[in-house]
Amino acid sequence: MPNAPGTVPPPRHPPAYLALGFLVGGVTGASLTALVSGFVVGVTPLVVTGLVLPALSGMLFFLATRPRVAREAAEVPRTALAAIESLEASEGEASDVPVRFELSVAPDGAAPFRVEVRQDVHLSELPGYRPRGVVVVEYPPERPWKTRIVRRPTPRWEERASVARVDPAPGPVLRHEVPSDCLGSLLSLLGLLIGAAVVLLLFRADLFGAPGDTGTPGRSVSSLSTDPGTR
């Protein structure tokens, strides 16, 4: 029997999201600083660093996330019946309207749960969705907050939905939320500043010159002091 989904919403600030924001900010700051500095002072290694760093970071990110993406793609979604507790359609000019649904999902052989989803619905199909109406949904067993309404269910599930009655599920409501406050933005800004500072520190000799170099004027003064003058 499949495990019942948990009743705790996903963390609002997952560490992976915060770390990714910091790394993206660092790569962006380092790349922009290297490109601008390299073009201004004519230092080829800086220009190359600014071009290679984003490509290398993108490749590493792809390799790091590939196992998770493959695992999620191989996960077989679960089908269940759900009752519409409430719905709210947003205004739009396109034929598909964004709709927020709050659903009570009743999986077979598992604990019911309540979830909030946002899904586009065609204008011609919108009247078919009403409060306390029963619909067919699919969701990944390990990520129930990604529940989606099946627009064209199989005849068997469509028949079940037409005669079924789903009781309201207890809360809390599962939501697929993305951090929206300033914590992620602050970490991205911090990463951007640190990335820029690292580039300036590593290439300070090319950008600002070697310390202690007095240049040509110092040699001119020395030669004048040792040259006997004539009156």
Score class of each variant (00 low, 15 high):
3 N>C: 05
5 P>L: 00
6 G>D: 10
7 T>E: 03
8 V>N: 10
12 R>N: 06
13 H>C: 08
18 L>P: 03
18 L>T: 09
18 L>W: 07
20 L>C: 07
20 L>P: 00
21 G>H: 03
22 F>I: 07
24 V>F: 07
25 G>A: 12
27 V>F: 05
27 V>G: 02
35 L>F: 02
35 L>A: 00
36 V>G: 07
38 G>P: 03
38 G>F: 05
38 G>Y: 02
39 F>D: 06
40 V>P: 03
40 V>E: 05
42 G>Q: 09
45 P>K: 12
46 L>Y: 01
49 T>K: 01
50 G>M: 03
53 L>A: 15
56 L>E: 04
57 S>F: 15
57 S>R: 05
60 L>C: 14
60 L>D: 09
63 L>T: 06
63 L>G: 05
64 A>R: 08
66 R>D: 11
67 P>M: 12
69 V>T: 09
69 V>G: 07
70 A>I: 08
71 R>E: 14
73 A>W: 01
76 V>S: 10
76 V>N: 06
77 P>L: 04
79 T>E: 01
80 A>F: 01
80 A>L: 03
81 L>W: 03
81 L>G: 01
82 A>R: 02
84 I>R: 04
87 L>T: 05
88 E>W: 08
92 G>I: 06
99 V>Q: 04
101 F>T: 00
106 A>K: 04
114 R>F: 04
116 E>Q: 15
118 R>I: 09
120 D>P: 03
121 V>H: 12
123 L>C: 05
126 L>Y: 04
126 L>H: 02
127 P>F: 11
128 G>L: 06
129 Y>Q: 08
130 R>Y: 14
130 R>I: 07
132 R>F: 03
133 G>S: 13
135 V>N: 00
135 V>T: 02
137 V>M: 00
141 P>E: 09
141 P>K: 08
142 E>V: 02
143 R>D: 13
143 R>Y: 10
147 T>K: 00
148 R>I: 10
150 V>H: 02
152 R>T: 09
154 T>E: 10
156 R>H: 10
159 E>R: 04
161 A>D: 00
162 S>H: 09
163 V>F: 07
163 V>A: 13
163 V>S: 14
165 R>K: 14
168 P>R: 14
168 P>A: 14
169 A>Q: 03
170 P>L: 06
176 H>Q: 14
182 C>W: 11
182 C>I: 13
184 G>S: 09
184 G>P: 01
185 S>D: 10
185 S>A: 14
186 L>E: 04
187 L>M: 08
187 L>A: 04
188 S>R: 05
189 L>R: 10
190 L>M: 07
192 L>H: 04
193 L>G: 02
193 L>C: 07
197 A>Y: 03
197 A>I: 04
198 V>I: 15
199 V>E: 01
201 L>W: 12
204 R>V: 07
210 A>N: 08
210 A>T: 14
211 P>R: 10
211 P>Y: 11
213 D>C: 06
214 T>V: 13
215 G>L: 14
216 T>I: 13
219 R>H: 12
219 R>W: 14
219 R>F: 13
220 S>M: 12
221 V>F: 11
223 S>H: 09
226 T>A: 11
229 G>E: 13
229 G>W: 12
230 T>G: 06
